[in-house]
Amino acid sequence: MDVLSDVITVMRTGRPVAARVAWEAPWAQRFAPVPGASGFQVVLEGTCWLLRDHAEPVALRAGDVVFLPDGRGHVLADSPTTPPAGEACDPNAPGFAADHPVPADPTTVTVCGAYEPADVHPLLRDLPDTVLVSGPEPRAAATLLAAELEHPRPGSDALVPALLDTLLLYLLRAWFSGREHTTGWAAALTDPVVGTALHHMHRDPAHPWTVAALAAASGLSRAPFAKRFTALVGQPPIAYLTWWRMTTAARLLRDTDAPLAAIAGRVGYTSEFAFAAAFKRAHGAAPGRYRRLGSGT
Rank of each mutant, 00 (worst) to 15 (best):
P128R: 12
W49K: 01
P33T: 10
V3R: 00
L127S: 05
G86S: 04
P237F: 06
R228K: 06
P101Y: 05
C112K: 03
G195W: 04
P224G: 09
A141C: 09
L51E: 00
A264C: 09
I263V: 10
T107Y: 03
W209M: 06
T182I: 06
T81I: 12
T108H: 06
W243P: 00
P84Y: 03
G219A: 11
V42L: 12
P205H: 12
G135A: 10
G265T: 08
P94M: 04
A286I: 12
D191Y: 04
L123T: 03
A264Y: 06
R281Y: 05
H100Y: 14
P106L: 08
S38C: 10
L232A: 09
F67M: 09
F67K: 02
R245P: 04
T108K: 07
A286S: 14
V7K: 03
W175E: 11
P117N: 04
S295W: 07
D70I: 14
A88Q: 02
G113P: 10
D129E: 10
F31R: 01
G63H: 07
A28T: 08
T210Q: 14
W49I: 03
H207G: 05
E87V: 13
P69N: 15
G296V: 04
P152L: 14
A88E: 02
M201T: 10
R254Y: 11
F225C: 06
L159D: 12
A158S: 09
P106F: 05
V58H: 03
V66F: 03
T81N: 14
A88M: 03
R72Q: 11
T82C: 08
V133S: 03
A213V: 08
P103F: 15
L76Q: 00
F31T: 02
E56I: 13
A215T: 08
E272N: 05
L172T: 04
I8D: 07
H121Y: 01
A59L: 11
G268F: 01
W175P: 00
L241Y: 10
L241S: 12
P128N: 12
S221T: 13
E87T: 13
T47C: 08
Y240A: 02
P103M: 15
F225I: 09
G63Q: 04
H121E: 07
P236M: 07
D105H: 15
V66C: 11
L168M: 14
G14S: 04
A274P: 00
L145K: 09
L293P: 01
P106R: 03
A104K: 15
Y170D: 15
P136N: 14
A77G: 05
Q41C: 07
G178P: 15
Y290K: 06
F279V: 13
T108P: 11
E45P: 06
A282C: 10
V131A: 10
L163H: 12
A85F: 01
H181F: 01
L159G: 06
P192S: 02
L144K: 15
T270L: 14
L168F: 13
H181V: 02
C48A: 00
V211W: 00
L253C: 05
A276M: 09
V131T: 13
